[in-house]
Design a protein around this nucleic acid. Structure first.
Length: 269
DNA sequence: ATCGGGACCTGCTTGC
DNA sequence: TGCAAGCAGGTCCCGA
């Protein structure tokens, strides 16, 4: 469900109700996430939220001497409650302020929730991460330099968080199509010029999706998991057998690195 | 160092 | 209608 645009949309959605508010309590109903949720998250209680940031697909709810580190995994979502509501299946925990409650739901339990002391970058889950795709630190030149000598498929390469963060399965397919690069081409065999086009494509597609408020999480009432209206803008993803919008060739689906990949055999080389 | 594959989960859709 | 297989937007960890 959540790629970077959805995570950023979630961040923007929970920032107003949390920023400047004191965390009164954290109620863990079901600690079984990717890693068991421990009592260490209670360190945030009694503190005021000073910022709600995003790093890669993590959301960091900052308080005094640390932050709550949140990942939505494949199926995670949060909603903001302003009145009591009985928990549903897969509602794992609540973060309560006086005014509102953040409730986290994650059926597949690939998400995570943990306490992160400062400095955040030192946390094992955050250190070693590559640049943010929408930051100055990310460029075609960066991709080019990091890819020399690599034989892995370029699609896997750009989905590797140590190279660049936030490029998930959908947008990897989309960006490669926009740049005209075949997803299974060896990363080390893509020219600097084509990496420049790829970096632009990644920034363009992620930037547009963020500006549109993501897709499935536009509201926080727990929408259902299918692609929202951004799906209409997808050029190749989930379009197997349908005509390429550039040349009419039937779009191919193939598993690369255990993930479905969609591309045009004629436009992408 | 790099790579591919397996692992972790539930729920929905598809096909026999 | 029922049941099993296949599929899903992430990413960590392992052995080669």
């Amino acid at each position: 469900m959540p790629e970077l645009p959805e995570v950023e949309t979630t961040r923007r959605g929970i920032e107003p109700p949390l920023l400047g508010r004191r965390i009164e309590s954290i109620v863990v109903r079901d600690p079984r996430l990717r890693w068991p949720v421990t009592d260490s998250v209670q360190a945030a209680c009694g503190h005021e939220v000073t910022a709600v940031r995003r790093r890669a697909k993590y959301i960091i709810i900052e308080v005094g001497d640390g932050g709550l580190l949140l990942h939505l995994g494949m199926s995670g979502s949060v909603r903001i409650l302003t009145e009591d509501e009985p928990p549903r299946k897969h509602d794992h925990f609540d973060i309560l302020t006086r005014e509102a409650t953040l409730r986290y739901c994650d059926p597949r339990r690939f998400g995570s929730f943990s306490w992160c002391p400062r400095p955040f970058e030192a946390h094992p889950l955050l250190n070693g991460l590559g640049p943010e795709p929408l930051s100055e630190a990310f460029s075609g030149d960066h991709l080019y330099r990091r890819s020399r000598g690599r034989r892995a498929a370029v699609k896997n390469f750009i989905m590797d968080g140590r190279i660049v963060v936030g490029v998930g399965n959908i947008y990897a397919s989309e960006a490669l199509f926009m740049a005209g690069i075949h997803p299974s081409r060896a990363a080390g065999r893509v020219s600097a010029a084509r990496y420049a086009a790829l970096a632009r494509a990644i920034q363009d597609v992620l930037g547009r999706a963020v500006r549109q408020g993501g897709t499935t999480l536009r509201d926080f009432s727990g929408a259902g998991g299918t692609p929202g209206y951004f799906a209409q803008e997808l050029l190749v993803y989930d379009r197997e057998g349908r005509p390429c919008l550039q040349c009419g060739t039937s779009i191919t689906r193939r598993v690369i690195g255990q993930r479905s990949s969609f591309y045009c055999t004629s436009c992408q080389r």
